[in-house]
Write a protein that binds this DNA or RNA. Sequence first.
DNA 1: TTGACAATTTAAAACGTTTAAGTTGTGCGT
DNA 2: ACGCACAACTTAAACGTTTTAAATTGTCAA
Lengths: 337, 337
Amino acid sequence: MRPTLADVAKLAGVSVATASRALSNPDLVADGTRRAVRDAAASCGYKINLVARSLRIQRTDTLLVLAPCIDNSFYPGLVHSIEHAALAMGYAIIVGFTNKTDKYREAYGELLSAGRVDGMVVMDGGSGVDRFTGPRPDLPIVQVFDQIYESPVPVVRIDEQQVADLAVRHLASMGHRRIAHIAGATDAPSARQRRNGYTAAMARLGLPVDDHLVRNGHGHREGAVEAMKELLDLPQAPTAVFCASDSMACAAMDVCRDRGIHVPGDISFIGADGTCDGEHVYPSLTTVDVPRAEAGVLAVEKLVGLIRGQAVASDTMLPVELKLRGSCAPTRTAVAA
Amino acid sequence: MRPTLADVAKLAGVSVATASRALSNPDLVADGTRRAVRDAAASCGYKINLVARSLRIQRTDTLLVLAPCIDNSFYPGLVHSIEHAALAMGYAIIVGFTNKTDKYREAYGELLSAGRVDGMVVMDGGSGVDRFTGPRPDLPIVQVFDQIYESPVPVVRIDEQQVADLAVRHLASMGHRRIAHIAGATDAPSARQRRNGYTAAMARLGLPVDDHLVRNGHGHREGAVEAMKELLDLPQAPTAVFCASDSMACAAMDVCRDRGIHVPGDISFIGADGTCDGEHVYPSLTTVDVPRAEAGVLAVEKLVGLIRGQAVASDTMLPVELKLRGSCAPTRTAVAA
DNA sequence: TTGACAATTTAAAACGTTTAAGTTGTGCGT
DNA sequence: ACGCACAACTTAAACGTTTTAAATTGTCAA
């Protein structure tokens, strides 16, 4: 059997209370006692039982991080920064990948409801606000990017409209007028906002908003491939495409390569998210960078504030910026002019 | 305050013991009582406190999964299968990314030592057997692919020598004789074994083992880029390269593209791991596929067996297989012949 | 009416820690 | 010599469950 504090206490010839203090609150005991207890603990290989500790102090010092999936390269960096920030603040983390299914969402949500974690960072926009029956919103929860819970559950996010605006304006500045959009999963709020942002930006610039130029890529490669094929088969194909994610942009560029269409000579591409996906393709992908690392750190700080009962800003909006790489070029007419 | 079992019991007019039974062991109480307790629980929004439960039953029904990093695309699929298998067997999981640092390894290892999880799946070969001071080896631990703990801590793995053998034999069968190897991180046992396997396979086939043809890619893109440049600058460059991982192979192929060297016309590439990395590059990467999904499931089954005190096989070896794609071609001389 | 027996339910202990409140002992000022 | 402050330690309660062993019911046969 594993030695408990009682064993250590007996070994050191003190009470359990003193043993506890000596190990976790050393200032409160005399030097000699402290040493005796520590020696006793070491000699019998004592390890604290964190479950018992948590029950007593009513904290677990653990956070739950809920991400949609592990295979999308958008989240690793985000999870990483959250993990780092959490550990620095004395919290362990549990990462849960929901795979965008409610079954998993609820399974992990239980951990918060059942007190196994002190708070939760949700990054999973979810397939429908109404269907997600997560933990009660008055528990410590912070959302990142996509919103599931209504205000006042805090959120750290970016201006999704601005993402689209930067992308479209960049393409327009290079002379493009027929700019297409390959949209992300329709049930993700951020994808819908990017789509709206695209339409708004086009209108603002006086560019024709042709419904045929907006295709649903469903947020994954296969969808983007399909969408791109449709775009290329149009009577008047676009000269530029704004994709709602880098992975879709890469897939769409692959379609062009297969058809012998040159990027960016014949057609320009711009992605969004700033993931490493677009870094090692040819040509490398120009994209709108999302500050994931900052978002992660801010989310943790906010969550810890919430847990400690402090007041926290409920809505934080982070700036995005264009990351220029090699997939965009001026139109032929613009070059000729 | 959150309602406890005592609140539910009072509300239902029964004792705490009966309330507990009604909720977690329904067969042991009368129908009416069961209904009364359930109604009471629902009406006051009772949620069980898993920490208290764990303390009492001396189990957490949670497993720890230790992966080296989240950004390497090798692990997501593995973690995924582990997660799935664990949930199916009634276990929750905590995924820890060690980033290959001992600080993180120890931080996560504490969770096992301190009883916050029932067992651990380790996939982190680690930067040195001796430096890793993880949980005691007599706790329930299963290793996947890379070995940190000595036998008898069980391991699920593949024959790393066979990985190299398949790769080299495939290239040789296409007429290649000057076959180079870009090796992985020197401190990872699996990388060392692949390297040895390469040498052995070359020797077995009677091919010249030239020290200049073996380069250390350190397991990451940057290292592979450096290694590939050196290989191309050799007086006699190789006609084929076996890379210890897909990501390194992709990076190495990028170097060739930048230099105008055609793959597979001028030089052939074969990777290892079977990740999606090599799927969407051009040309797509021929590779030696590692059965990650199976390994994950087996590891969990083994771990749960260990936790339940059953005897488990200590060493399971899984077969690997060649996954043919587009990055290998016969040598010019082989074609001419 | 009584005892035996099964079906329910309950009281109380236990899991391993932390901590409020209480005890002891020492030194110091008066 | 007395009381007092203070340091050091201990006792005991508490956290919220589960479960053993015991108690309470009700039923039925003798």
